[in-house]
Design a protein around this nucleic acid. Structure first.
Length: 339
DNA sequence: TACTACTTTCCTGCTT
DNA sequence: AAAGCAGGAAAGTAGT
């Protein structure tokens, strides 16, 4: 239908139902967040994602006082990584329990070794040369690390201090989010004041795995601190310019690779085969819309874009399963071996 | 400015 | 009945 004859004064969801009488009554809030007086699932999901302020303040107040249970010399029994911190289990909000956010994933409980791992992974994520960070200044465990102020980070790591502080803050935030997520009061709020003035996102902005790629997913875990230092010897790498910004499939991929920042949105169905499923389809669409500054983004539109990827073999069809997609031969960066 | 790649919007028909 | 999938068509957006 030519756009000239489209009735754009009527929301598409309603227009569609007008054209499609079988579709009356779907929640239009998913298509127009903030305009729904009754809570629907999508609104609730978004709220959970966008409303961390209370949790964060609580996190900052209380996290520091937690007594570490690890010693300086204790070594982790398992490598610290988002993948093994988050087993492939359903991660819907309501079912999110503390077993998915174990002590070893909380910065407060890190050993000295884990602090170094974190340093390495932040550097990997930002492709920063290790020479930029004086490791001797971070010869401490997680409890001590968490007690550092922003200024302490600046003193310890110079310009890198901001990145490190930012990363640690997010991890503490995540830890607290996950600890409290089950008790979280659900309200239809879409904006929140940024809790970290020194490292703030723009007002109302939510975590974006592309803009803020702080989740440590970049590299294999070294077997020792010595390996960590050796791995830093490579020259500083420059990110490949992506003139179009992040594509949808990359956005989806990065959510999958950073589940601790977007719990319960998308989950791997088959990690090895690249099969994944949307758990909160409208929430993902809202997140994508937020990134594209498009408040009217819906899963319906997002899924159309996803279907275009079939032709380009960035995605493959998964027949007979709703909300399930599979990375295709032209998708890059999702395999564990590619990290 | 034109071209291009990619995404978004709208739609119908169908399936789950 | 509602939600999701498939895919055509066209418009919008942004980089070159």
């Amino acid at each position: 239908m030519p756009s000239s004859v489209r009735d754009n004064s009527v929301p598409y969801g309603l227009r569609r139902n007008l054209h499609h009488p079988a579709r009356g009554g779907q929640c239009s809030a998913a298509r127009a967040p903030g305009h729904c007086s009754d809570l629907c699932q999508a609104c609730s999901d978004i709220t959970l994602l966008l409303r961390p302020s209370a949790m964060v303040h609580h996190s900052l107040d209380t996290a520091m006082s937690i007594t570490p249970t690890t010693t300086l010399d204790s070594m982790p029994t398992t490598p610290w990584s988002p993948t093994n911190s988050y087993p492939d289990v359903p991660m819907v909000m309501s079912g999110f329990t503390s077993r998915l956010w174990s002590h070893e994933s909380q910065p407060q409980f890190w050993s000295k070794y884990q602090v170094w791992e974190w340093l390495q992974q932040v550097l990997d994520m930002h492709q920063i040369d290790a020479a930029n960070i004086p490791f001797q200044n971070f010869d401490m465990d997680g409890h001590q690390l968490c007690s550092l102020s922003y200024q302490d980070f600046i003193r310890a790591a110079g310009s890198m201090g901001t990145i490190l502080f930012h990363s640690l803050t997010e991890l503490k935030w995540s830890a607290q989010c996950h600890a409290e997520i089950g008790q979280l009061e659900v309200k239809p709020e879409l904006d929140f004041p940024c809790p970290f003035p020194d490292v703030s996102y723009p007002p109302g902005e939510i975590y974006d795995p592309i803009i803020h790629p702080l989740a440590p997913v970049a590299s294999p875990t070294p077997s020792s601190p010595a390996d960590i230092k050796r791995s830093y010897s490579r020259p500083h790498q420059v990110r490949k310019h992506n003139p179009r910004g992040t594509h949808l499939w990359e956005f989806i991929r990065d959510i999958l690779l950073s589940p601790e920042r977007n719990p319960g949105l998308i989950k791997w169905e088959d990690r090895t085969e690249g099969v994944f499923r949307f758990l909160k389809s409208e929430a993902v669409a809202q997140l994508w819309g937020k990134k594209k500054n498009n408040s009217s983004m819906t899963y319906e539109k997002l899924s159309r874009a996803m279907r275009y990827y079939y032709k380009r073999e960035i995605l493959e069809r998964v027949d007979g399963r709703r909300l399930v997609y599979k990375f295709g031969r032209n998708a890059r960066g999702w395999r564990e071996s590619e990290k």
